[in-house]
Design a protein around this nucleic acid. Structure first.
Lengths: 187, 187
DNA sequence: TTCATAACAGAACATATTGTTCTTTAAGTA
DNA sequence: TACTTAAAGAACAATATGTTCTGTTATGAA
């Protein structure tokens, strides 16, 4: 990818993030974005067909990182994802989320947060299906499997939203405990 | 309220619902709504300052009904809300939701479903705080109260979304069981 | 039934936003 | 250096928004 392309892409992402702090998604115009980013109108449309595509790609890039299954050496925690322990996995993800705290809160609270949440739910859904639902013999026979998975991933999204609402006061480890406390008795 | 006002208001609501089936919220124009509703442009803006206000008021009206604490005699179920039994309350709400099934699914799946969900969550949050969190001595001392309430109400919204996604196949009683199955062990 | 009031229709309007097309300039790559 | 490709900038049509008129019609009260 051309260096210029990366630069404009970054500039647009940054401008968009900055604007999302004060204005709401639907009220931000393409004009404002390109003014803030200092790029030409043509350039914007060359990168993103619509404003929605911009939001979509921003979400995708963020989650691609947060849910990446090969974490580099982290300064604050060095658990390996390979262990497969649910609590560890969750803690790992929460650390990544906290790194992107500001962007997260912007995307989750902007009035198009629904798109963001859908992504979030979807990524975590996949993770739950893969890692946390094997080997666990089901105690709960009342509810169907797919509902249970949906419940777990939905609860995680909710938890993170609650965490963000409270300015991420608690450390990731504690949040992971909360998650486990409401999920463990059910599976 | 003037009979003419009610009539136009109804016409606009109906037209909006009808359009939401095939087109997505943000792509629907005011022009399309007033064409479908057969009302003048001026009239629309006299009722709703913006398209968002229309969506907002539609949601509010719907939930006002669904969460109304004085249910009339229902043909399918005649539990009283006064009993205070959580499962009964939930079942009651689910019946109301099913009545408005089509409108619900439209609002929940349209790309501005976030607003709708926020309303939903908010209403149920209030209900949980009032009815389901009194007298229950907390077994779970790990998680804070406000998180627990948030978790419960969030889980209900999730459950309903899952129900809608599955074409509301299961009867409300069964859905209430699912809810209880994932919530009861936690409280 | 009459009558004042308020809601509505319809057209015309300014304004703003979108997305495209062109040419020219500058940066990156081989 | 020379070729290629991205970006800037201006100008454009097309469309949507929200407002302001004027005239008409339905409604509820006297």
């Amino acid at each position: 990818m051309d260096r210029r392309q990366r630069k404009t892409r970054e500039a647009i992402f940054d401008a968009f993030s900055k604007l999302l702090i004060h204005n709401s998604y639907s009220q931000i115009t393409v004009q404002e974005i390109i003014d803030e980013a200092n790029v030409g109108r043509t350039t914007f449309y060359a990168h993103f067909p619509t404003k929605d595509d911009l939001l979509r790609e921003m979400c995708a890039e963020l989650f691609e990182h947060v849910f990446s299954h090969k974490p580099e050496a982290e300064p604050t925690h060095d658990f390996s994802m390979a262990t497969g322990d649910p609590k560890t996995i969750v803690t790992h993800i929460l650390y990544h989320l906290r790194e992107h705290g500001r962007t997260m809160i912007i995307l989750l609270t902007c009035e198009n947060g629904e798109l963001f949440q859908r992504y979030f739910h979807q990524y975590f859904h996949e993770l739950v299906t893969l890692h946390m639902f094997r080997g666990n013999t089901r105690k709960n026979t009342i509810v169907p499997d797919d509902f249970l998975i949906d419940h777990i991933s939905g609860s995680f999204v909710n938890l993170v939203r609650w965490w963000l609402k409270n300015q991420m006061k608690q450390p990731p480890e504690e949040i992971a405990e909360y998650f486990w406390a409401v999920i463990q008795p059910v599976v």
